[in-house]
């Protein structure tokens, strides 16, 4: 939680226009993407909440197109191995996600309490898995609906097959990821020569409680994450962008989030507004050092510790 609070400000990247098209492409190799401007987003290992990890992928190329009814995002990254099976204890799937919210910039740490975010997630195993891990070893005495607990509980990750290849989630901080009641997002990922290209697509209108809204001229804030199954990346072990992109839903411009435009995210005075990626702990320390209330607190604690040790002797 402390680390989450520490990451109140994020760095910014260059502007990117959103292209308006007649038909929003569902395929990652559709011609409509050829003319769409691209933005390269750099990724870093996740080091805000345990378990730390990631870092296998250091950048993702992103595009966005829209029309009157739909919006689509394309992500492309390098990954030499296609990891599409989760059929063994040590098998993890490649995956990608976009975290987004309209109106104000959310905390990069998957939102926060009272500060929800919308997350779109694609997993290669949903789309490309070919294995059937069980079911042929002996005759199974009981009905499947009693002996597949994940399915019996309605776990959205325990389905026997998937058709939209994406899931729509809400989160209010780490560990809070929740499957949304409505599932309006579709995804489609295909291998490129050296990695993956994935398209996420959704209608502008979505009825879910925290679904990102693509209307009312509100700015949309976006950030990205990639998991490489070959490196056992799963959960918090992921490569993510600490930088938000913004998408102007009026004029269709995808651009850098202004770090001063962080809504309620920089109100915690303990960090003195220092601009810091958590990966750069040195920067964070400098920020803390110039923060006189923090110094005062540090001095008080030090003085107390010294006198305590003396007393003990």
């Amino acid at each position: 939680m402390v680390l989450q609070v520490a990451v109140v400000a994020v760095l910014t990247v260059g502007p990117q226009p959103l292209r308006s098209v007649n038909e929003v492409p569902a395929e990652p190799d559709a011609a409509a993407w050829d003319d769409a401007p691209t933005e390269t987003v750099s990724l870093d290992p996740q080091q805000m909440a345990l378990p730390y990890g990631g870092g296998s992928v250091d950048e993702v190329t992103v595009q966005a197109v829209t029309n009157d009814t739909h919006v689509a995002f394309r992500m492309e990254w390098e990954d030499p191995t296609a990891d599409t099976e989760i059929n063994e204890p040590n098998a993890y799937s490649d995956a990608a996600a976009i975290m987004l919210r309209s109106g104000s910039q959310p905390p990069v740490a998957m939102g926060a309490s009272g500060d929800p975010v919308n997350i779109w997630y694609w997993r290669s195993s949903w789309q490309h898995s070919e294995s059937d891990p069980g079911g042929d070893m002996y005759s199974y005495p009981h009905p499947d609906n009693e002996t597949k607990p994940g399915q019996a509980a309605g776990n959205p990750l325990s389905k026997s097959s998937y058709n939209r290849y994406a899931q729509n989630y809400y989160a209010t901080g780490y560990g809070s990821l929740t499957n949304a009641e409505t599932q309006p997002v579709a995804a489609n990922g295909e291998r490129t020569d050296d990695g993956w290209a994935v398209v996420f697509q959704r209608e502008h209108d979505a009825s879910g409680q925290y679904d990102a809204a693509f209307e009312d001229g509100e700015q949309m804030y976006l950030t990205y994450a990639i998991w490489d199954g070959d490196a056992d990346e799963v959960n918090g072990e992921k490569s993510l962008s600490y930088q938000f992109l913004t998408l102007d839903t009026d004029d269709g411009t995808l651009s850098a989030a202004d770090s001063d435009d962080g809504g309620g995210n920089e109100t915690d005075g303990t960090d003195g507004g220092a601009v810091a990626g958590v990966t750069d702990s040195a920067l964070w320390l400098v920020g803390a050092a110039t923060n006189w209330p923090a110094l005062l607190a540090l001095a008080t604690v030090t003085a107390w510790l010294v006198s305590y040790w003396r007393l003990r002797e």
């Binding site: 079911g135 994940g150 990750l157």
Partner: peptide, 24 residues
Amino acid sequence: CRGYRKCVKSCPYHKPMYNPETGV
């Protein structure tokens, strides 16, 4: 459960186990 397998990894007695059929 989302099938992260952190329990599978952390239990020293190896009693949480991964179900490849349900993915959790």
